[in-house]
Each structure stands twice: as structure tokens, then as C-alpha cells.
Design a protein around this nucleic acid. Structure first.
Lengths: 335, 335
DNA sequence: CTGAAAGCGCTAACAA
DNA sequence: TTGTTAGCGCTTTCAG
């Protein structure tokens, strides 16, 4: 391994001179600087980040905690955070929790050990340990997408209550009277986003005088295609003659459509199906899934800028921002 | 920030004792150990990874270079690498190149600076700089999914030549006589996977006596849904009356289906459409896309195990493994 | 414009 | 069973 000392020896200068030669606009004279850069390149010098981090006690790194890397929604956010942070001179450490508390804690711990300066986090919400660990060490942190129940720090999120309202009023407008909501309840009991969704959905229906009993008609379902299928089948088995369904995400909605098709129930005319995320495939004519579009990339960029600004200004991060969703109407909810 | 020294002071022992107390099975007596662990927890001690890395000159980290984090194919591999590596006591640094040479180089440099012990890499193939950088420093490395033209190191890949053959013989069996291949050529001129695909496809067709002129019928196309649409439209504009098309991936195939539907050409009866990746959505009845399944998770796990084994045994990584694809036939290619 | 020296937090020889 | 000491590679005062 080649170090700054090797270069110093080869160039016949001190380590200080070498170190400063890499820092633009430092004292070193042009000829010395060039000589050193040349030698560095020749012997294939690579600065040791660990040493620099230790010396500066600053890693110039932020952490990004996501729930599911295989879900393009989170993957795109991770990418955006990376791009934004890089532009500001920061690296990004990505950690995935897969909705698992233990994994979340492990990832947070890893980030703390790596001395990240701050964290952009999509928390699990099934336990408080993750953000508590950060709060105790007052590590700068921005919650993104969802905001845990007792969390009081900065956040950037989507307004899912409005999303629920948009979906509900659309169902009413297309003449549906037996709406159902499919959200993850068993597995993510306190997922605030879905609680907000339920609230908006229920309230809007109530205002329109459409009966909706959250206890019976907000049904637990996962967020995969298979979960959607299963949910539809359970719905029928339970004798709930739904004519409109809002799903926790697009994948779940696709599953519902699939099962409905198979059962001879036509998505659209017989059963309005609405998803969330506005995935690209929902746009395909063969699918044509009505969906609620949530800004993801914008969310990530805003959170990253706020976080790094907070870090640099030595103070705390203050952002509390809520983005508005948009209903994209397609055939799956039209009569 | 709290260090090992703070604990030592609080416990009235030396730093060595504290350090060793965290290492299971070291000399320290049980009571001392417990006392130290307790204090550590109380004052919220977090080990400094940079310091440890510097001291040990070992980061216990490997790098994972991927092309597109928003593509579930790569995201799932990244996850698998992470899981496998963690099981073996290694962290993973994820870096995304987005098929961009400069970004690839930057990510590799970042990994070198972070003193990763080895790298699992999906290379761009548009430039050699990435893997050359590694080779020069003889950094252990396993190429995954694709293998750059001049690269001579270890790899784990899919057999795309066979994939091409499978697709071709399926087209022949369903009576197609005017096959077309849609692969990225303009943007990724030397993408070895697609070269192999073309080779297998062309040879199998030649053997069956079906005319296929690679110069005219292997058409450049991107790998997104929109690229597939565009490609179909250009195909028609060029007067190529294709009756079968093999696409570089499923997304591209979905775009072709979409455009075909819109043009009144029925995927299946009129035009066999075949994709690659066997994405979950292709299974939906409304899509029913014939596709070539490639093991991704298995690939990643195998590469990671081989890499870490090589690292630990102090020697070089030796794996050269090719996985077999499988044709999943669905409606999009049936008469 | 350049160099000498100290130290970031941790671990591993070597002593006791 | 515990402590002393040195040093990983880098940056930054402070002297020249």
C-alpha cells in the first residue's frame, strides 16, 4: 500500500507538502505541486479515507436508511439522495431495513460507527428504537416518506390524508357506494402514512354520506402483487360486495386486478381499483391503473439539501414539509 | 464524542482492557468485562470504525458496483450481496454507475479510498478504466452478470448465448420466419451479454434455415418501456414486417407490446414478443409476457461467497461460473 | 514557501 | 489477568 510518506520520500519533500499539494489553493508552489501530483499518479496513490476521517473527525458522509431496495420507489429516492449529496461533497451510506426492527437498528448502528454526519431515514415505525438511537446522540436526521408516531424531529413526507380524500371523492363521483381499503395493518401496526390514508378516506366518505366502517372495511393486506390477490379473494369469501378499493400501493392494486379478472369481476365497471405510487407499468394500456402519484425524487432532494445545510450550519435541521399527491385517473376506476 | 478512553477512566482500567472487553473470548475477567460493558452502554459508546480500520488496515468491507439501482434486477442482487456478506462479517458499500463511465470510475475510486477488500462488479463495458483500476492495484474482484471484452478475471454470469438460442428455437417452433432482435447497441457498443445473445440467436436461426441478417435485423434499442415503443414504431416505419421479436429486457418487451396493441398488431398471434429477466409483472394475465428467466440472487450469492473466500484465504479469487437461463413461455409468444 | 511534531481512536506486541 | 507503549495515515498548528 502506498501512502503520502512514500510520495514524500520519492519527491524529496515533507509529508506536509504532499498533503497540502492535494488541497487546491494551498500555499505550495506550482512546480512542487506538479511534481508531487505526477509522482502520486505514477505510483498509484489512493488517499486513505479512514485516516483522513479519523484525523478530521469528519467522514463527510450521510446515511440513507430505506425500507426496501428492490422497490423502485425507495431505490429512486436513494439515487436522488446520492446525487444531491455528491453535489454537496458528501458520500452516502445506504442501509436497508426490509421493515425489520432488528435490521433497522443494525443499520443505524453501522451508520453511527461510520461516523455519518446525518441520516435521511425511512423508518419502520414498528419500533421506536431506530430514531431514538439517533435522538439520544443528537444525530441530525430527516424522516422521509413516513413519520413515526412519537417522532418529533424534522421530516419531508407525502400528504396521505389528502391522498385518501382524493381517492374517496373519486370513488363517490364514479358512483361507488361500497368502498374498501386495503392497507398493511397486521405487519405495520402504526404505519403513520397508512393511518393518515385511512383517516382521509374515511372522513371524505362520511362527508358524502357513504357508509364506511373502518373496523370492517379497512382490511389488512401486504404490499405485494400476491398480497393483493389474496386480499381480493378474502374479500369475496367474507361476502363483502365491494365496488371500489383503494390499495396501499400499486403492486397490491395489480394483484387485486389480477384476481378480479380471474373471478369475472371487471376492474373499472364492476370494481374501481386505485393504487398508490403511480408506477410506470400502471400506464400501460393493458393495465391502465388509476393511481395516486407521490413525488419521490423531489422528496429525497429536499430532505438531503435540508439535512446537509443543517449539518454545515452546525445547527439543527428544521424542515417540516408535506408534499401534495395527485390522482391519476385511468381505466381501472372508470365506469 | 465518547471514546474508549472515557470508558477506561470511568472504570478505572486501561484502554487495552476496555478494547479487549468487546472482543469475545479474550483474556479479561468476567466481572471486569461486565462492568465495562455496563459503563459503555450508559455513556452511549459507539466504536469508531475509521480508527479501527486505520489501525487494522482492514475495513472488513466489500464494494458492490451496480448499473442501475432503480432496476429490481440489480437491486435484488445488491440485497443478496449485502445479506451474504453480512453473514460472513463484512459490510457492503454500494455504488451505482448508471452506465456512465465517469460515474463508474468515481465509484471505484471511492471504494479504493474506503479500503474495501474486494469488489463485486457489474461493469459498464463502455470503457475499461473501471476494472483496469482494480487490476493495477490487484484488488480482488468478481464481475457479475456481464463480462467486459478484455477482462480476464473471475466472473459469475448468465449464459446469454443459450438464451438467444432458446428464444430463436421457440420462435421457429411457433412458425415465425421474420425474427428481429432489439438490443442496446448504440449506447453500449461492447456489451458482451448482448453480443452473446445476438450470436446464439443468429446461429440457432441459421441452423433452422431461417433468414436472419444481423446487420439489418439486430436493431439498436434502449432498455426502457419507451425505448421498446419507439423501436416498434421504427420497425414499422422501416417496413420490416417482423413476426417475432426478442428484446434486451422485459421493460423493452413491454414497450413493444404496448405499441403493437396500439397499432392493431396482436402480440402472440401476429407478433411473438420475448423479453429477458422474467419480471414479476410479466406474470400478470393481462401482460403474460414470454421471458427468459436468469438467476440473479443465486448469481450474487455465489459471487460474494467466492470473493470473500478468496480474500480470507489471502489469495486470489478464482471463480468462473456460467448460469443457465430458462425460457418461460406465456401468451405473448403463442399463436 | 516548506518542515517538524503532535495527535485523531483504536489495537497488538511486549512487560509486568 | 492487566497495563505500557507504539503506531496505523493523515492533517494541522507552529516554527523556520
Amino acid at each position: 500500500m502506498t501512502t503520502i510518506r512514500d510520495i514524500a520520500r520519492a519527491a524529496g519533500v515533507s509529508e506536509t507538502t504532499v498533503s497540502l499539494s492535494f488541497r487546491a489553493g494551498s500555499r505550495i508552489s506550482a512546480p512542487t505541486r506538479e511534481k508531487i501530483q505526477l509522482i502520486a499518479r505514477q505510483i498509484g496513490y489512493v488517499p486513505d479515507l479512514a485516516a483522513r476521517t479519523l484525523r478530521l473527525s469528519d467522514s463527510r458522509t450521510i446515511g440513507m436508511l430505506i425500507l426496501d431496495i428492490a422497490n423502485p420507489f425507495y431505490a429512486r429516492m436513494a439515487r436522488e439522495v446520492e446525487t444531491t449529496a455528491r453535489g454537496l461533497g458528501y458520500q452516502v451510506l445506504i442501509g436497508e431495513s426490509r421493515w425489520d426492527d432488528a435490521r433497522e437498528t443494525a443499520q443505524v448502528e453501522r451508520m453511527l460507527q461510520a461516523k455519518v454526519r446525518g441520516i435521511i431515514a425511512c423508518f419502520c415505525e414498528t419500533a421506536d428504537e431506530g430514531w431514538r438511537l439517533l435522538a439520544v446522540r443528537n444525530m441530525p436526521c430527516v424522516a422521509v416518506d413516513n413519520v413515526p408516531e412519537n417522532y418529533r424531529g424534522p421530516y419531508v413526507r407525502n400528504d396521505l390524508e389528502t391522498a385518501g380524500r382524493l381517492a374517496a371523492s373519486h370513488l363517490i363521483e364514479t358512483g361507488r357506494r361500497r368502498p374498501v381499503l386495503l392497507i398493511p395493518e397486521g405487519s405495520h401496526p402504526r404505519f403513520s402514512t397508512f393511518q393518515a390514508l385511512k383517516k382521509g378516506f374515511a372522513e371524505e366518505l362520511a362527508q358524502a354520506g357513504v357508509p364506511f366502517d373502518p373496523a370492517r372495511q379497512a382490511i389488512a393486506s401486504g404490499l405485494t402483487i400476491d398480497d393483493g390477490k389474496t386480499a381480493f379473494e378474502r374479500l369475496r369469501a367474507a361476502g363483502l360486495e365491494a365496488d371500489g378499493v383503494l390499495c396501499g400501493n400499486d403492486l397490491c392494486a395489480l394483484g387485486v386486478m389480477e384476481a378480479a379478472d380471474a373471478a369475472g369481476v371487471r376492474p373499472g365497471p364492476d370494481l374501481a381499483v386505485i393504487g398508490i405510487d403511480n408506477l410506470e407499468i400502471g400506464r400501460l394500456a393493458r393495465i391502465s391503473l388509476t393511481s395516486i402519484r407521490q413525488p419521490d425524487v423531489a422528496l429525497a432532494a429536499e430532505a438531503t439539501n435540508a439535512l446537509i445545510e443543517g449539518i454545515e450550519s452546525g445547527g439543527s435541521v428544521q424542515i417540516r414539509s408535506t408534499h401534495q399527491p395527485e390522482l391519476i385517473i385511468r381505466a381501472s376506476s372508470r365506469r
